[in-house]
Design a protein around this nucleic acid. Structure first.
Lengths: 205, 205, 205, 205
DNA sequence: GATGAATGAGTCTTCATTCAT
DNA sequence: GATGAATGAAGACTCATTCAT
């Protein structure tokens, strides 16, 4: 009985789940192209190949799409982190390598998820969006804190928080430049500068 | 005819100039409150105490207002710079002091011109706005370059440009945090971190 | 085959009947809360704990729900009438008592069936709704006529019809006030006035 | 100077004033046809021969149109009342005549202002509409109270209020029937009954 | 029958911009 | 130049109804 009834339910949910992924993917695409503000829900629906009404079957409003996308990104980041990150090796790893790999991961993530920058690499957000987008921000912040804590043994949690915030803000400020770089060389140069900036900040913080 | 109309023309121009200032001031106020995207031209007109039609007598569209405001800020920045900055003393001044005073000036400028952040402290801009807002960005950039050149004697113009760009981007990333700081203490702490970040970056660049 | 399917069919019909009651009950609840126009079929389905699709398995459209609900009320009214009303005693009962008990019954019915007022106590209806709702209206009308006929011996059927219509319209006009009365005292006072109004009208008609 | 500057201002206001009348007239027409709920703001704009945007230059939303229309009707009713009503002669006029002329006026008003019934002759209203429509209701109520006060010398203000409310509700209940009467004869018959109903109620109240 | 996803026309409203006066 | 009315294309969102499973 369990099996028998579980299947159809799952099937239905599966269809919805697929649609949700579809919508989120479409949203990410359009956000990446036009930015969050300039993206209309109808444009998302069109990009997803569905009708405006269908979109609202799954999301109550535009902000909820941003929130869900943000949560999706948060999940992906967490997943990637779990795969990549070796907490054991972190303590004695050199800061240089840690920063390098973290920045590389973030850049790679941005390239693989073009919508991410619309939710992450924006320093100036309306309150409603800021709230919707909090999940991904927090995951990034928590991840950075986790890296920093063993590096700043004498500091209070608040101090490390602040340092993480500043480091993230530096990255945030540089991200659009990196992503919009006209060629690979420019991007590499900018990435190198970003590494320098973050590293030197962390060393003198 | 020339003589006869000369004075009224000047008067008209003068009046026009005043109107333009009026509009720009209103625009800055509303930009500061709601951000550029969420600001309607009607809201600007209302804030300026004029009719929407009048606004369009002076500005062809919303972007042009941003451009003019940006140019106004560029002018103010240049003026302030001319008053404050002593090129003679720069060469042998210590970088620390230079960075400190420059950042302080920029913060002060932001506080004195609340609309500035809507045009400057935004890392992610639609193309049309980015272009409109270029003037102020360039003045800032040029100012920073001017400071940096004597500090990086061996570097090419391009390299210094890049360093300036990165430094600015760091500031840009931090500015919203600074301006939205809940209290003076937080702001001071953030400002100190920003100083550290810029300084250490410049030192290791 | 006939035999084999006979019972399941009945079962199905029984289940269907239950579903229909379920839907009608839900509809009445939501109508009572928001009024007919503001009630969405999805809201009814949700209140009934079923899916929108299921609802349309039993009712072709929103108006049909109103019609069925109206028919249900008509049935209930008829049933109550049969239980309560003693045609034998009516002829010589005093009009005063008849009016009083009839109005009391109607009020009670309204209180017991909160959805009734959305279909009955509305003087201004779109044609489609008016038609759908006719059944209950007619039962009420017929009931009143039945009471009035022996009271107006000399009058033609049309005249009695008219008198009944007017009496009902008076009740209809007062019903929302009665049902929305802020407290019991106010309601009682309004009920008394309504009695006076109907009684004096009937006496001078 | 006064004259000179007053004119253009008035001219501009006049244009707006005319538009407002135009919109209210259109709204009344559509309300009369479809009822308030079923009337869309776009339909009003179309009926008024203007664009949807223009409508919102004068009214913030649909409710505000209802309110303005209600206020217009309130004004008209007051004006008519001032022209027609002779307070001096009221005291000793017979109730019969007063009721007759009042009901006749109200019927005439309804016929001359087809939108009125959508705002007045509706017993069951959503809260937002009820509030918007209050002005006209109050004028009618006040007018009736004014008539009734000398007729009910011993009663408190609250009692007279209640009596007026009931009388109005009777009229309200009958109005749709009157207005939708298929022919003049039916309407006259209904009007006669309404007179009887109101009069007998007032006599026995 | 049941489900919930799908539809798409339609709702109210906003806004950059233009135009008559 | 100034005014404020005019425009109409969007925008976010809703809802009665239908359809695939």
């Amino acid at each position: 009985m369990q099996e028998a009834s579980a299947r159809p339910v799952r099937k239905r949910q599966a269809r919805g789940e697929r649609r949700i992924q579809q919508i989120l993917h479409a949203a990410a695409t359009v956000f990446a192209e036009k930015g969050y503000d300039a993206t209309s829900t109808n444009a998302i629906a069109t990009e997803a190949g569905i009708s405006p009404g269908s979109l609202y079957q799954f999301f109550a409003n535009k902000d909820e799409i941003a929130r869900a996308l943000s949560e999706y990104y948060a999940g992906e980041l967490t997943r990637l982190r779990a795969e990549t990150f070796d907490p054991a090796g972190t303590a004695d790893a050199d800061l240089d390598g840690l920063v390098e790999s973290t920045l590389a991961s973030l850049l790679e993530f941005n390239l693989a998820h073009p919508g991410f920058k619309a939710l992450f690499a924006r320093t100036d957000m309306p309150a409603s969006l800021r709230e919707a987008v909090a999940p991904a921000q927090q995951v990034v912040h928590a991840g950075i804190v986790e890296i920093l804590v063993p590096r700043f043994p004498g500091r209070s949690a608040e101090e490390v928080d602040l340092i993480a915030t500043v480091a993230i803000q530096i990255v945030r400020g540089m991200t659009p430049l990196l992503l919009d770089a006209p060629d690979e060389a420019t991007r590499a140069a900018l990435a190198a500068q970003l590494r320098t900036a973050v590293l030197s900040y962390l060393r003198s913080a």
